[in-house]
């Protein structure tokens, strides 16, 4: 499997971040959560590899306080 990329990999990070916020604009909490859930699934399918996905899950979990 390819390793999970945890080094900077986003070209023009501010623009991408703004896209994310914009997608959520005007949504209430439930709609926002649902959008996130769909987004995770779309990205998960793109990743495809279960090990890679589990590494991403672990990375997300580790960074939480």
């Amino acid at each position: 499997m390819t390793d999970l990329v945890l080094e900077p990999n986003i070209d023009r990070p501010d623009d991408l971040y703004a896209d994310l916020l914009e997608a959520h604009e005007g949504l209430d909490e439930a709609a926002s959560a649902a959008l996130n859930a769909r987004l995770i699934l779309v990205l998960a399918n793109h990743v495809g590899d279960r090990e890679l996905f589990r590494a991403a899950l672990a990375a997300a979990r580790n960074a939480g306080s």
Partner: peptide, 20 residues
């Protein structure tokens, strides 16, 4: 339930979600 519903919504639009 949220993830379940997300899968179902996606399944209407995209084949990738149907196996889920």
């Amino acid at each position: 339930r949220m993830f379940r519903d997300a899968v179902l919504d996606l399944s209407a639009a995209y084949p990738f979600a149907r196996p889920l």
